Amino acid sequence: MRRILNVINGMGDERNLVGVNGGIEGGRGGECGRGLCVVGEEVRKVGVQSGK
């Protein structure tokens, strides 16, 4: 059971990092990257939720 929970927590951490990276890259894209920022933030939220 503990191993399964560790895998789930690891996936949440990975989603969080992907979300943060998406937000950063979207910010670098200026106006064209705005959509990527929104997606990155939503992915980050999912990562935080799955880590709980």
Rank of each mutant, 00 (worst) to 15 (best):
V39T: 13
N6A: 09
N6L: 10
L17P: 01
G47A: 03
R28C: 06
Q49W: 07
R34M: 05
M11D: 02
Q49E: 06
C32F: 10
K45G: 02
N21A: 11
G19H: 09
V46N: 03
R44T: 01
R2G: 13
V39A: 11
L17G: 13
L17N: 13
V48P: 00
K45C: 01
G47P: 08
M1F: 07
V43R: 05
E14K: 15
G33W: 03
R3Q: 10
G29Q: 11
R44N: 06
I24V: 15
Q49M: 07
V39G: 00
K52G: 10
V20N: 08
G40K: 00
R3N: 07
G29I: 01
G33T: 11
K45T: 08
S50Y: 08
M11Q: 07
V39E: 04
N21W: 10
C37A: 09
V38R: 05
S50W: 10
E31A: 15
G22Q: 11
G27F: 02
V43F: 02
G10T: 15
R34T: 10
R3F: 09
G22W: 04
C37Q: 12
V48N: 04
V18T: 15
R44F: 04
I24L: 11
N6V: 14
I24C: 02
I24Q: 03
G27E: 02
G35Q: 01
C37M: 14
Q49R: 13
S50Q: 13
G30E: 00
G19M: 04
R44C: 04
E25C: 10
L17S: 13
M11P: 00
G35W: 02
M11F: 09
D13Y: 14
G26D: 01
I8E: 02
C32Y: 08
R34N: 06
N9W: 10
E42I: 08
I4Y: 08
V46E: 05
E25P: 00
G35F: 01
V48D: 04
V43S: 01
G47M: 00
G27N: 06
M1S: 10
R15G: 03
G27L: 04
G40V: 01
N6F: 09
Q49A: 12
G23K: 10
E31D: 09
Q49V: 14
V46T: 11
V43T: 14
G35I: 00
G26N: 01
G35E: 03
R15L: 06
R3P: 01
G23E: 10
N16Y: 11
E14S: 15
G33D: 01
L36M: 13
K45M: 05
V18N: 10
G29V: 04
V48G: 01
R3L: 13
E41F: 13
V38S: 05
I8S: 09
V46G: 01
V46L: 11
N9M: 07
G19D: 02
G23S: 11
M11Y: 08
V7P: 00
I4G: 01
G35S: 06
G40P: 00
I8L: 12
G19Y: 05
S50L: 14
Q49K: 13
V38L: 05
E42C: 03
L36V: 14
E42F: 04
